[in-house]
Each structure stands twice: as structure tokens, then as C-alpha cells.
């Protein structure tokens, strides 16, 4: 009986974590509010790293 209970409990715990993915992990917060102000003027030309 005890064994059954613990299996049930484990199953319940497992079910509650489904879908949370790596939400528990520490991730950089990319939902910060940005305040881009560079739109006042033209955009300066782009300079990229070497392509080949």
C-alpha cells in the first residue's frame, strides 16, 4: 500500500511539472522593455564580420 502511495505521489509530482520545460532554470530575461531611440534619424550603414 505504502509503495502504491509513493508511486502515485511521484506520478502526481511528475504530472505537475509537465510542460514547465526549463522554466525553473535561470535564464536571461529577454522580456525587458526596450526603449529604442535610434529612430530619430537615418540609420547608419551596416558593417558586418567577414563573410568568407
Amino acid at each position: 500500500m505504502k509503495k502504491k502511495m509513493s508511486v502515485l505521489l511521484l506520478a502526481a509530482m511528475f504530472a505537475s511539472f509537465i510542460g514547465t520545460g526549463s522554466a525553473m532554470a535561470l535564464e536571461p530575461n529577454d522580456s525587458v522593455d526596450t526603449f529604442a531611440k535610434g529612430r530619430e534619424n537615418f540609420a547608419p550603414p551596416t558593417i558586418l564580420p567577414p563573410q568568407c
Binding site: P28, N29, D30, V32, T34, L48, P49
Partner: peptide, 23 residues
């Protein structure tokens, strides 16, 4: 690797992912 990181940072900048780009 550095070339790819720079390209990635430029892309992040254009998407306003400020923290990632800054790092």
C-alpha cells in the same frame, strides 16, 4: 566563432534583445 558571435550580436541588436547583445 568570434565572427559568428558578432553576427549574432548584430542580429540581437536589430531585434532589441539588449541584454544578450550587450553580453
Amino acid at each position: 566563432l568570434l565572427h559568428a558571435q558578432l553576427l549574432l550580436a548584430i542580429n540581437y541588436t536589430n531585434r532589441d534583445l539588449i541584454l544578450q547583445a550587450d553580453g
